[in-house]
Amino acid sequence: MITLEAVYWIMGLMATGVAVVNVRDPTNPKRYNNTMFWGLYAATFLTGSYLPNFASGCIVVAMVLVGSVGKLGQGSRESQTVEQREASAVRWGNRLFIPALAIPAVTLAGTFWLKGATLHGTPLVDQKQITSISLGIATLVALVAGVVMLRPPLLAPLHETRRLWDSVGWATVLPQMLAALGALFAAAGVGKVVAGMAERWIPLSSPLVAVVTYTVGMALFTMIMGNAFAAFPVMTAGIGLPLIMTRFGGNVAVMAAIGMLSGFCGTLMTPMAANYNIVPTALLELPDEYAVIKRQLPTALLLLAVNTIIMYVFVYRH
């Protein structure tokens, strides 16, 4: 059976390769830091499932120190000049899109085909991880297609990975660090303390105030936790169910559905949702880390207002 472990091995090998390319590149002023950072990251994939949690934790802390205090650099060698790339674009034309579009296409096909697929009676892939494994397979298929078509030098894919990954830098691991922070927040009961304070300080005496507190609270709490899924149980147990549903007789389906969507408005406004808001700024080479959040802010605030109105109009209607 193919599990996520196989995908993690590929990730580990890729990060190892990037570490090795970096150590051999004198144009990168911080090449040893980069090598250490990607090497430690590779270790989390190759050994993470076998090491004790404390050892993994030490690797993670070391990686954070290298990436933030030590700083990462970037090699200055471009593999191809603009003219070379333009000539190549003319030569290959629209065929260049084939491997790129193969990624979503194969991922999608995988999620359908691999569901229930068996080999000698056992499932072919871990049924709980179909989407992630399909994505892993799709990237390999697309890479093979790209290599067969373009016939680049043997190590070109690795050098290109290094170029892109170094431009993303420490932001690569931020989503995972935020997941770790969320776990510690949950263990410490941060959500309960915040909901408790909201209950004590806000006079929830009318149906309208209850709705506004719930939708705005979902957005704010999602901004703190970086994730609407973490905010939903706390806000709904604290305000939604006891007040909107029980005291004021609101419709629970309307409340829950629009409450979650109000949380999504918060996701658009917070650096804590790093994989949506911070990682793209690195991927698109934007110097302002908040550039994407700033573009999302007007839509998010308007939608939060719309959500509040929709909920107030429909939740108490019978």
Partner: peptide
């Protein structure tokens, strides 16, 4: 992040 090798390769070829 596993998409990086193929995206990088295609960018090198002028995607």
């Amino acid at each position: 992040w596993l998409v990086l090798p193929v995206i990088g390769l295609l960018e090198r070829a002028g995607l």
